[in-house]
Each structure stands twice: as structure tokens, then as C-alpha cells.
């Protein structure tokens, strides 16, 4: 099977700054592929090369069996793209903008634009410049999805969207996969990738530092937790916590004579033992923070060195 996207030794240099150092990507058709990495890792550069908006300094990319340059407009009609920095200006109304973009993309089935707009909850009769960032982003999603492209290239697609709409977006991605569409999704939010992607590549400093099935990468392993528990002594709690594997930065505060004890810690790896320990007490509040991407990626795979990369 021809990969939906394939890059060989892709490099991109902007003057003295090297944005990509020999990127090799391989995206299976029909898969949701996540490209994650901190800001400045080279995600946007990679995606722009795929759309022929910028050209690589060396190396090649093949998309749906052809190169971005050779494929040209005909290739791009088969792709839906959300730019990383979507800016929409002008008096043009959302509907007019989408109608214009529909003319220059693949055929859009009648009613699709309105159906997507209803689903995402955006008013198409307002001038685009009057829309909030989130609503502009919704127009960006509509124009990428409306012609049911074979390949969706989405650069930080959920930025500016509220959590409810983010969930709708994740549904749309799953439906696209079920319909056989390939999705390449970039993000610096781990959970978003974990909820949708089959495969993932971790980008850091213009290099892939890890690549493989989502569950095979130890990406969710660093979490910050905070909790308040009642009915235990601080010393006892601290002792129990210190015995747990994978816990660090433990801080326990509160009144020695009883009352609510506040604790904070960094959990690496399995969170189950920590939850079981908490469950022995009355938990008055609990916060598990979204694992920090930089921490998860850079700590586990080094600061971007290829030698330490884990290929699965």
C-alpha cells in the first residue's frame, strides 16, 4: 500500500536557522497520525511543505503518491488544510468565504457547509473579521472538511476552540477515519493526540525523537497531581506517598493536629497506585493536570537527540 504521506530526509533551512533536520515520516492511509511537539519544533514547517506553500531545502515529500510540486492544484483538491495561524480578515461573510474556497477545492456536496456550521455552532452570515478567534477556527475546520478530502492536514486545529467544540472536532476526526480519510494532526496538546491518533511522531528541534503507536510511547507518564484529603496525619500520608514508585516532588502541607492535608506530587508512569492510596482516605478535592508535553517528551527522550529516539 502506498503511504498517504512519506517524507525522506526532509530538511528546511531559513537562513542560519535550521527548522528541520532530515525528517522521515510515514503515514499509513486511513490512519489518524499525530504530530506532536513543543512550539518551534518544526510542525508547521513540515505541514506547509506538504501543501507546497514552502519548499524543502533538501529531501523529498510524497503525498498520495506524488510530490507537492508535481501534484500541484489537482493534488491540493484532494487535501483539506487548516493553517497553523489561521487569520481571516475582510468584510466577506463566512458563507461567501466558504463558497469561494469551495470553488477552488474538491467538489463540495450540497448542504455540507451548513451542516458543518450547525454542528460546530458558527454563524455564517457575519463578516469574518467580526468573528472571535474560535469562530474563525471553526470556518477553518469547515473549509478543510467540506469536500471530504482523502487527506486532512490539520495544524493545531483546536486552538481557540472551547472544550465542547473540541469534542465535536474529535468526533469529526474519528468519523473521517471511519470514512477512510487519512488525517495528519499536529498539536502541542497531548490529550488531543491520545484521544484520536493511531500513530504519533514526536518532533523536537526539527527532528523526530520518537515515533510509533500512541499506546507504545510512554507519553502520558508525567502528571502533576494535587489533592486534599481528610482524616490522616501529615507524617503518615507523607510516608505512604514516599513508598509509592514513580512519585517525586512530593509536598504535603496542612495542620499536624488533623484537618485537611494538602498534597502535591509529580507522578511518573502508572497513576493507579496513587489513586488507590488516595482512596483509603476521604478525598475532598483532586486535580490531575494535563501531562506537560515538554516534560513528557524531553525528559523521556532526551533533548532531541536522534540516538535516543525510540522507534517502535
Amino acid at each position: 500500500m502506498i503511504p498517504a504521506i512519506e517524507t525522506f530526509e526532509l530538511t528546511k533551512r531559513y537562513g542560519a536557522h535550521q527548522a528541520l533536520h532530515g525528517l522521515d515520516l510515514d503515514v499509513t492511509p486511513g490512519a489518524v497520525f499525530g504530530l506532536i511537539g513543543p512550539n518551534g519544533a518544526g510542525k508547521t514547517t513540515t505541514l506547509r511543505i506538504l501543501l507546497d506553500i514552502i519548499r524543502p531545502t533538501s529531501g523529498t515529500a510524497r503525498i498520495l503518491g506524488t510530490t507537492p510540486g508535481e501534484g500541484g492544484p489537482a493534488l491540493r483538491r484532494r487535501i483539506g488544510y487548516v493553517p497553523g495561524e489561521l487569520r481571516l480578515e475582510g468584510r466577506l461573510r463566512g458563507r461567501q468565504l466558504l463558497r469561494h474556497l469551495a470553488e477552488i477545492s474538491g467538489p463540495v456536496p450540497p448542504g455540507t457547509i451548513d451542516r458543518l456550521a450547525d454542528r460546530l455552532g458558527v454563524n455564517l452570515d457575519r463578516p469574518v473579521r467580526a468573528l472571535s478567534k474560535g469562530n474563525k477556527q471553526k470556518l477553518g475546520l469547515i473549509q478543510a472538511f467540506m469536500h471530504h478530502p482523502e487527506l486532512l492536514v490539520l495544524d493545531e486545529p483546536t486552538s481557540g476552540l472551547d472544550p465542547l467544540v473540541q469534542r465535536t472536532f474529535l468526533e469529526m476526526v474519528r468519523e473521517a477515519r471511519d470514512a477512510g480519510q487519512t488525517v495528519l494532526l499536529s498539536s502541542h496538546v497531548l490529550s488531543e493526540i491520545q484521544q484520536t491518533a493511531d500513530e504519533v511522531a514526536v518532533l523536537s528541534g526539527g527532528r523526530i525523537v520518537a515515533q510509533g503507536r500512541v499506546d507504545s510511547l510512554r507519553l502520558s507518564s508525567v502528571r502533576h497531581v494535587r489533592a486534599g484529603v481528610d482524616g490522616t496525619s501529615l507524617a503518615l500520608l507523607r510516608g505512604d506517598l514516599e513508598k509509592l514508585p514513580g512519585l517525586s516532588d512530593i509536598a504535603v502541607t496542612g495542620d499536624e493536629g488533623g484537618g485537611i492535608a494538602r498534597l502535591g506530587a509529580k507522578v511518573e508512569g502508572d497513576i493507579d497506585p496513587f489513586v488507590k492510596l488516595l482512596a483509603r482516605h476521604r478525598v475532598v478535592d483532586l486535580t490531575v493536570e494535563e501531562p506537560d508535553l515538554e516534560e513528557s517528551v524531553l525528559q523521556l527522550y532526551g533533548s532531541g537527540s536522534v540516538e535516543e529516539a525510540t522507534h517502535v
Partner: peptide, 10 residues
């Protein structure tokens, strides 16, 4: 930013 969006199409 309009040019990037236009050029990403057909």
C-alpha cells in the same frame, strides 16, 4: 494570511 489559505487549495 489569505495567500497561504488560497494556495493550499486547488
Amino acid at each position: 494570511g489569505q495567500l497561504e489559505l488560497t494556495l493550499a487549495h486547488g
